[in-house]
Design a protein around this nucleic acid. Sequence first.
DNA 1: ATGCATTTGTTCGTATGTATG
DNA 2: GCATACATACGAACAAATGCA
Lengths: 77, 77
Amino acid sequence: MLDLDGPTPLFQQIAAILRARIADGTYPADKRMPSARAIAEEFGVTRGTAVAALDLLKEEGLIYGVRGRGTFPRARD
Amino acid sequence: MLDLDGPTPLFQQIAAILRARIADGTYPADKRMPSARAIAEEFGVTRGTAVAALDLLKEEGLIYGVRGRGTFPRARD
DNA sequence: ATGCATTTGTTCGTATGTATG
DNA sequence: GCATACATACGAACAAATGCA
């Protein structure tokens, strides 16, 4: 799944995978996607690393978070 | 009560104290024990930390939670 | 029966400290 | 020194279930 040795940081690798899942509809727009904790478990990293990956996608405008509810892919215009 | 400096995490210290109270009968089996909020107040931590301590005891099979009702020490066999 | 408070359980968001390369 | 990653802890918010007035 992840390249633990290579030069690419884990949070970037994870962001790339999540980005692909959003693009291909695995995570539909405005539907709750897996929590940071669930992502951390799937990839065997800590929540902090999962959050870093999600932060990347937020900066790109691909997703948004709602406290207490979850994280959602943004509807493309 | 807690060692704020030492190396042992707060949630582990709290779990140890609760574990002792269950063992010595302070919290009898199948009787509601203090809520996460009450535990947080007693030890001066946030509810999240109290929940982490309770989660530890759950993993050990020492207690179980019932949503809307409370947390209960498990009857030993 | 309707509403309200409490409780568990979960979420996001943030901050700090440690360790490693 | 800096970026990465882990672990811990705090804070705020939301949801579902319970119980009680």
